[in-house]
């Protein structure tokens, strides 16, 4: 078997295997081997998906969640990058801040959600803040590690060429840490999706998380699956966007 046929077989397999799972699911539900009221089936989910999309309801809930994730992502990553760079460059800032980060990082962000609700109320701020805090930790830790991982020689070069404090940040620390910053942003994106769904389940009037909870309340399994599929699509789109931006701002990195 030559390489060409091999790769063709692999490609067919990667399409065939999920399709057969869907087919099996449909079959088991139709034959009532599994309870279709609880696990539904692909055809019924599709039947719910189309009208939800047509009516605009699905887009509305998605858009609400996307906006919260976006602003939370910005609000968490910008301070994370700035503080992470300062911690990486300055031992003083590092020793002052790192213990606090290390002590509060292990607290699950979901555990402080009631506190966030008390502080910021039920409005948008509490959702955005929840996402922001999750993103912040991952970005600050990765950014600091990224700056500290920069080969010392580049700092020597900058110093030798008379770099100012600003030059150290802009010409060495930021570009040098950028690959790690992106690693943090990608982890943060996964965290943002977890947190937004959780936040919307407990206190929201719209959004994908709210949609899931509403489906649970109304025992609408099909709608719940539509929401789950939407989350998967959103996560995929977000990671593509981050990949595109990464390739655009990191032309000096080798990609295989």
């Amino acid at each position: 078997m030559n390489e060409n046929t091999k790769s063709k077989i692999f490609r067919i397999l990667s399409i065939l295997s999920p399709l057969s799972i869907l087919l099996l699911w449909e079959l088991l539900a139709r034959l009532s081997v599994v309870d279709p009221r609880l696990v539904s089936c692909p055809s019924a989910i599709l039947k719910t998906f189309v009208p939800l999309m047509m009516s605009g309801q699905l887009f509305y809930d998605s858009w609400v969640s996307i906006q919260r994730v976006f602003w939370g992502f910005i609000a968490g990553s910008l301070p994370g990058i700035l503080l992470g760079m300062s911690m990486g460059l300055s031992p003083i800032v590092r020793s002052a801040v790192e213990p606090m980060i290390a002590a509060t990082y292990p607290i699950p962000k979901l555990a402080i959600m009631p506190l966030i609700l008390l502080l910021f109320g039920l409005g948008e701020t509490s959702k955005i803040f929840t996402v922001a805090i999750g993103v912040f930790y991952l970005v600050v830790i990765n950014t600091m590690a990224g700056v500290m991982g920069i080969d010392k020689i580049y700092l020597d070069v900058a110093k030798n060429f008379g770099a100012s404090r600003k030059d150290f940040y802009l010409t060495v620390a930021f570009p040098g840490a950028l690959p790690m910053i992106f690693a943090g942003l990608k982890l943060g994106m996964g965290m943002a999706l977890i947190l937004i769904v959780a936040a919307e389940m407990s206190a929201a009037k719209a959004g994908i998380g709210y949609m899931i909870w509403r489906s649970y309340d109304m025992f609408d399994i099909e709608q719940m699956f539509v929401a789950l599929i939407t989350l998967s699509i959103l996560g995929y789109i977000f990671s593509i966007i981050l990949d595109v931006v990464e390739r655009w701002v990191l032309p000096w990195k080798q990609y295989s």
Partner: peptide
């Protein structure tokens, strides 16, 4: 002064 270093010191991001 300007220095030429022994090890690889060209900025990879420029």
């Amino acid at each position: 002064n300007s220095m030429v270093f022994q090890e690889q010191s060209v900025f990879p991001w420029l």
